[in-house]
């Protein structure tokens, strides 16, 4: 495993003490040096110096980073604040990181421990994410990579090496599962673009199309387009978290509790803020329709009425690629 120069951020003593804090059993045979490498990798990832071969480049690609988070693509080392590093190290889930480290090394005891402790939850998560049938498969697909069957540049590479200890190991495993699942779904969507159209009965599509075509009001599509433009603007104007909350609720269909879990808010807060955001958007949209688009109250009503009806087939398609 390639690593950043030993001791650049984390001294061996610090690694040793953190390893003790993680209270890894002796039979895992986890050496302080090895743990130190993992800590180095984690710190480097966090503070912007990505060692080759380790974690991916997502952080460095993100723009608008914090000033205290210098991304030095040059070789000049901008050493992060030692105190910041210490605080970061203290915040890590060292027990989980030690387990990941030991498993990555191929220690059988650690692997057994991992299987005993995490496997049931992993299957459960797989099922919750992908459903009964595919959940197991999804979870199983992870093991080969975790075990490190894949070789990169002659070295055994375990998925565990990507774990940074910034989250619980469980959460990270869920994130990996979720990513694979979503990737899979999106791939399937791309390769089967007709699926959605086929699933609907041809007769119904025809009837919808006819309904749309024979729509008594020729302005229908114009109104819908206006509404869409205005609404998009209103959504853009929202604070990110407000928009996020709405999307979790309306697009992902999460419960208030799940949204609260994601945003670190109480359910009641989620509910209240959703309501407030809805009101704001409504006000914004209606204001814009009246003032910018010069719609009358009656036309406004028409807009809503159109929006309630089934939309023309192609328009629906174009507007909700994510569905």
């Amino acid at each position: 495993m390639p690593s950043s120069p030993a001791g650049q951020f984390v001294s061996i003593d610090v690694a040793q003490s953190l390893l003790q804090k993680g209270s890894a059993p002796a039979e895992w045979n986890l050496k302080a040096e090895r743990f130190q490498e993992a800590l180095e990798r984690s710190v480097a990832h966090r503070f912007g110096r990505t060692p080759s071969g380790a974690a991916t480049n997502a952080t460095s690609n993100l723009t608008g980073g914090a000033p205290s988070n210098p991304r030095s693509n040059t070789s000049s080392p901008t050493s992060p604040d030692a105190r910041a590093i210490q605080a970061y190290l203290d915040s890590l889930h060292v027990a989980d990181l030690a387990l990941a480290c030991a498993c990555s090394q191929g220690n059988a005891e650690a692997w057994d421990f991992f299987m005993a402790q995490f496997r049931p939850a992993l299957y459960r998560a797989g099922r919750a994410i992908a459903g009964e049938a595919e959940g197991r498969e999804l979870a199983d697909s992870l093991y080969a990579d975790l075990y490190g069957l894949r070789e990169a540049a002659g070295q055994r590479k375990s998925l565990f090496d990507y774990f940074l200890g910034r989250s619980k190991l469980t959460t990270w495993l869920h994130a990996v599962l979720a990513q694979r699942h979503v990737d899979g779904i999106r791939r399937a969507r791309r390769t089967e673009p007709l699926e959605e159209g086929e699933a609907g009965q041809p007769s119904s599509d025809n009837s919808d199309a006819r309904a749309a075509a024979s729509s008594p009001d020729p302005e229908r599509n114009r109104f819908l387009a206006i509404l869409q433009v205005v609404l998009t603007a209103a959504l853009d104007a929202l604070a990110p978290r407000d928009r996020l909350r709405l999307a979790y609720y309306y697009v992902e269909g999460l419960t208030l509790a799940e949204i609260g879990r994601l945003l670190g808010e109480h359910e009641a807060t989620v509910s209240r803020k959703l309501e407030r955001t809805r009101r704001e958007i409504r006000k914004h949209v209606e204001g814009a329709l009246r003032q910018e688009k010069k719609l009358s109250a009656a036309q406004l009503q028409l807009c809503y009425e159109y929006a309630r009806e089934e939309w023309p087939f192609d328009l629906t398609r174009a507007l909700s690629p994510g569905e």
Partner: peptide, 29 residues
């Protein structure tokens, strides 16, 4: 109700998402 449908459609759009999606480590954190 009409607004809810509109919101659902509009929010489902992938606006401004680039190639810079964070990896699972960040999602988990």
């Amino acid at each position: 109700k009409a607004m809810a449908g509109l919101l659902r459609r509009s929010l489902a759009q992938n606006t401004g998402a680039g190639e810079d999606c964070p990896e699972p480590e960040i999602l988990a954190a």
